[in-house]
Design a protein around this nucleic acid. Structure first.
Lengths: 224, 224
DNA sequence: CAGCATCCTGTTCGATACTG
DNA sequence: CAGTATCGAACAGGATGCTG
């Protein structure tokens, strides 16, 4: 009845890590909890197209048992169950970040039937954005929508990327085709071209301020 | 007949990475190829206790197809097939390293029936060792044995950790119980105590030279 | 012997239907 | 909304047999 008692049985840090988060879907659930913050069951399902509902329930139970996810019952009037990463669970972001870096070259092509959610860009954007105008007042660029996206906040030379919040009014909003979004933030699509294509609403200069990171953060590694 | 056409179908760098290396055993095979260097089939099997032989063959074929592993036929007299990481495959070390860092706290306890191979320490040791005596002549400390272990080479302030080579004569050799080895290199077991327990052969000062890294590399993160 | 392929069994996964 | 129940298909694990 309980899942994954299956273990590699190795006294090895990596094998023991994989015993906890190596099952199918598990690291994507962690990605969701990182990218969305504390989430309800149905929101997790929306960010994990194709997952079986029983599998999501199993994984959440296993993650909870492993001390990586905490389940909280919100009081009235919300009256909902909320899943959030514990501190130890949030420490998985390093693994997620390395996966994103390694997988970056795989984003060059876009299969039309692949699903896409703008909030999936949160971890990648953390490595891809900078503040090119440290002296300017604080600005926020939204990627995607208020319901599903990321808010890139630039202030005093540093950027922070958070799940988009309906209570924030961004200075600019960027949206469009998945591959165009990726191309824009990896530098393959010029900002002017994105603007001409109608991808940018609001202050184009705010977009110019945050787009573009260090070459290393683009995950430029051989081909595949 | 061909494995894993199963894909997450997401336009997401992490999901696409997991499509390639997210299957069971795959990242442990990568760990083996990193820790052993180019290897023969039987050597991989020895480092992956419990893997089904057909599964290893399948995974190697998938990795080859993904461009992460290259298969080479050695000419006579060796006449063997050798599997090695490609450049793109070797780039997975960042993911392996993050897994090791995150999994480090899980090594605190040691189940007696867990298997252990000294060469599994190679990636962890890369984050755990330093050269405390940059001025001293080059020295090599072996962990494990010539047949299965790592050689830690300290020279001019930097250390490099490689699979143990029979053609190298180390200045000191460290071996012993798996948990004692881990405790030694994570600083929980004093070098003097390891020496008193008979874990060290040769020049104890060479061991003292390389053992101990930055606090950050110990992977100190919450509990679990 | 190294490097698999085949066969078989048990577990996990995926899709859908259903429930408090 | 947050799951549980069910069932066929795919996959993992173990033993064994084949082939140069």
């Amino acid at each position: 009845m309980l899942g994954s008692v299956r273990t590699y049985g190795q006294y090895c840090a990596m094998a023991r890590g994989l015993d906890l988060v190596g099952d199918r879907w598990t690291l994507l659930i962690v990605r969701e909890l990182i990218s969305l913050g504390p989430s309800r069951y149905a929101d997790l399902q929306r960010g994990l197209p194709g997952i079986a509902t029983n599998l999501l329930a199993n994984r959440l139970r296993e993650l909870e048992h492993a001390g990586l996810v905490a389940r909280t019952e919100l009081p009235r009037p919300a009256n909902a169950t909320v899943f959030a990463l514990t501190e130890r669970g949030a420490a998985l972001e390093g693994i997620v970040r390395e996966f994103v870096k390694w997988g970056a070259p795989l984003m060059a092509t876009h299969a039309p039937d692949d699903t896409f959610r703008p909030h999936w860009l949160l971890v990648p954007l953390r490595g891809l954005c900078h503040d090119a105008t440290p002296g300017a007042p604080a600005q926020v660029v939204r990627v995607g929508t208020a319901a599903d996206g990321c808010d890139i906040a630039a202030d005093a030379g540093t950027v922070s990327v958070a799940p988009s919040s309906p209570s924030t009014t961004p200075d600019a909003t960027v949206d469009g085709d998945p591959d165009a979004l990726v191309a824009l933030f990896t530098g393959r699509l010029p900002i002017a071209a994105a603007d001409a294509a109608g991808m940018i609403t609001g202050d184009v200069e705010a977009v110019r301020r945050v787009v573009g990171g260090t070459p290393a953060s683009l995950g430029a590694q051989g081909s595949a």
